[in-house]
């Protein structure tokens, strides 16, 4: 499985860089991340709970950063396993300055095995991309919060806004659903369906405030229905 992409941040590289080395920040932005702790220099131990199609379970593993070039980027080695299979991957992250903005480029190649590979194959790329995009969106929000907090403290205000929580399971399901739509629908039909789906998911997220369990359940069904509907298109 190959992964590649870029994501823009409305923040200088120097603000972004330390956050990309901070396990607390990273654990917060990654959907399903239950723990990420430093076990050595540039070495982390993590627990990630994932659900890909019918396969779900916890992965445990080591994340090692190599070739760390502050503040330009680093390479990543991931070696994890769990009940649903194993993941072994290498990747790289580069930060490129672009005026006031910073572009984050990422690429990676992962070997996925076990039940995860055999049963979830069709959803694997989609899910991986959803995890990455939501992580980056989460990071974007944290960066904004950090920038606002810095601005606030400069103005002498003390009530810094709280960083946003990591995406919930329901939000993750919606993300996967959106990705699936992109994969299976012709572009001209996509917008209306995405709007419709996001509307539904938005309502679900409201409902979630009332009943967490209920919303999770429905969001997953929506994701499933989309997956089914998408294939027949």
């Amino acid at each position: 499985m190959k992964i590649e992409g870029s994501y823009p941040f409305a923040a200088p590289r120097d603000v972004l860089w330390p956050m990309l080395l901070d396990p607390v920040t990273l654990a917060n932005i990654m959907p399903g991340c239950e723990a990420l702790e430093t076990v050595g220099e540039n070495q982390f131990h993590g627990i990630l709970k994932i659900k890909v199609g019918p396969v779900q379970g916890k992965f445990q593993g080591e994340v090692t950063l190599t070739d760390v070039q502050s503040p330009r980027g680093y390479n990543i080695l991931i070696d994890g396993k769990g009940a649903p299979g194993f993941v072994k991957g290498t990747g790289s992250m580069r930060l490129e300055e672009d005026g006031d903005m910073t572009l984050l480029h990422y690429s990676g190649d992962a070997q996925v095995g076990g039940r995860l590979a055999s049963v979830g194959q069709r959803l694997l790329d989609t899910s991986a991309n959803a995890i990455i995009r939501q992580s980056l969106e989460g990071l974007g929000q944290q960066v904004q919060a950090r920038m606002m907090a810095d601005a606030s403290s400069e103005l002498g205000m003390t009530d810094a806004p709280m960083p946003p929580a990591p995406p919930s399971q329901a939000a993750f399901a919606a993300g996967v659903a959106k990705n699936l739509v992109e994969e299976y629908l012709a572009p001209e039909n996509r917008d209306s369906l995405i709007k419709g789906v996001l509307g539904v998911v938005g309502i679900l997220l409201l409902v979630r405030l009332l009943s967490n369990w209920w919303a999770n359940n429905i969001a997953q069904k929506v994701a499933k229905a989309l997956e089914k509907g998408g294939k027949e298109v």
Partner: peptide
């Protein structure tokens, strides 16, 4: 099967 020998069509989804 992929190059590592993983069966990537192991369900009726694929």
């Amino acid at each position: 099967y992929d190059a590592g020998g993983q069966l990537v069509t192991g369900s009726l989804l694929d």
